[in-house]
Write a protein that binds this DNA or RNA. Sequence first.
RNA 1: GCCCAUAUAGCUCAGCUGGUAGAGCAUUUCCAUGGUAAGGAAAAGGUCGCGUGUUCAAUUCACGCUGUGGGCACCA
Length: 638
Amino acid sequence: MPDIILSDGKKIPFSKKIDGFEIANKISKSLGKEACIMSVDGELKDLSFSIDKNVKVKIITAKDKEGLEVIRHDAAHVLAMAVQELFPGTQVTIGPVIENGFYYDFSRKEPFTDQDLKKIENKMREIVDRDDQTKREVWKRDEAIKHFKKIGEHYKAEIIEDIPENEEVSIYHHGKWHDLCKGPHLPSTGKIGKAFKLTKVSGAYWRGDSKNEMLQRIYGTCWRNKKELDEYLLRLEEAEKRDHRKLGKEMDLFHFRQESPGAVFWHHKGWTLFRTLVAYMREKQKNAGYKEINTPEILDKTLWEQSGHWEKFGENMFTSDTPDKKTFAIKPMNCPGCIQVFNQGLKSYRDLPLKLSEFGKVHRYEPSGALHGLLRVRAFTQDDAHIFCTEDQITDECLSVTNLILKIYRDLGFENVLLQFSDRPKKRVGEDKIWDKAESALLKAIKQSKLKYEINKGEGAFYGPKIDFVLRDTIGRDWQCGTLQVDLNLPSRLGASYVADDGSKKIPVMLHRALFGSLERFIGILIEHYAGKLPIWLAPLQVVVLPIASEFDNYAKNIFQQCTKAGINAEVDLKNQKINYKIREHSLSKVPLLLICGEKEVKGKSVTIRKLGSDKQETLSLDQAIENISKKIKFPIN
RNA sequence: GCCCAUAUAGCUCAGCUGGUAGAGCAUUUCCAUGGUAAGGAAAAGGUCGCGUGUUCAAUUCACGCUGUGGGCACCA
């Protein structure tokens, strides 16, 4: 007699046919209630799937990852049901599960409003209460296409046409409603539970192609229970509180205005943060053997034609026509300018590797819909560098760049870094032999760094393979920042060469690298990572001196001056306000240290320190306090 | 660029169906000189994003533009 083997190794014998409901109920009554779907020899199936041979079965409940995914998938179906009950004539398309929830794309002339969203959600709850039973059928392909065309579901018909010949065309019924779907599904709509919420409506192109119709996408989130849903909503709120656009305004760091969309107006404090980062980088790069240069922001169009940017990147470039009928382009990248510096004067193999760094401000015409605070701008500063070297030097140089990047990320509070290695794309320049060399050199550097890495096959740039450095922030979001690219193309296009040890002229390999990528974007990430509470060495305002009463203003001013002399970013707050008020105000604006002085401090030539996030007080002699702070504001050494 | 939403004082926001605007905070002045997260009072602040139209009358309605937000597409 055949057996069902459960995941714990137990066997359930059966006589004829058996389905998931029966198996679950045989194990326990509670499992019978909780069962969502099952895995049969590793394949996910409906509980109603009937088994007639020896197989391994695992009953899946909401506790399993797959169970939650099915719940979300069913929620997407119920969303589509609700929409079609409320808005007949709306075409359904696809409705997949995504991180934290699901969405469904609809084709309908009239837009869904926020009120519609509420109505739809209520209807969904009605359907869940109705507990419509699920039924699966397999249809003939032609009939299915004919059927969906007949009922006006042209997108569904199109999807069926694309299903591979060897696959079944399965139709799921939930009560009176039905949809083409691969499945599996919950036994009935009631199993979804109540922990879902429609979150937003937006546009999305059919099949993700901007040439196609724009559909209306309704997003929802769905969880096992109300507690999980609330936790998720709370997490969203927390992320919102960290939003760098909000904090940037509150902390008086920068603003944007419509005269120059996507370009930052840095306020003094924001610019101080910017300069601190640059100063820190200058020091690190100098120690790592880089030589800083600076090149023009506007360069003649012909140079961009020669470099290939005009053809490949022209649509993203700002240009400027001059009265003498010349066309200049505002640089979107620093590389061509940097190569011109390399090209000036004769270079010998003895000069290599030559590491030229540049804090270059570049402009790119980004699509208006892509702009997003500091994270996606049209004008930004790259912490760029180009390393000119021989083929044999690639590995060592890549390694030293990787080490530098990791050290710097650690200094800035990012411990969790993921590398993404992208190898040769189909469309590329250069001989395979050189690609082999470049790829293995990069891979070797990755392996020596002992970091986690992923391989993105065929995602490299047309001129060479690359490593992207992805940071994970405090709340688990990933940000692609640094990049290291091997360039086998540009140096020759722009005529770069050096004299080799045998006297021959050779073309150098060029490595492009950026650690922060864009200073602007990186500052946005830093603000969100620290929720505005920057470590003191980065804080644009490190100390505010607060006198208890105006009687002590002079002593406070004296402290302020001494701080400034010691290189501390300080302010003194002489406002006629109570100390409570001032502490609240400066704590909210995230100043790391408040120096408070009153009668006691004047007498003792001391100062009382209050750290951000703590209500402890520490009184030190003024000299000692300044010495301590001076130490803390130094760049970290790792 | 595309879809939807949105734009009111420095900031956060209110203003029902058309009759040119309000609050809190911030600012200024006055009182209070207060020891660790908001003391009290008064004053000052807005061509209601820009443009066109409908109307006796537009912050309010319609259309266009620009910016912003959420997505989609894009991100060399």
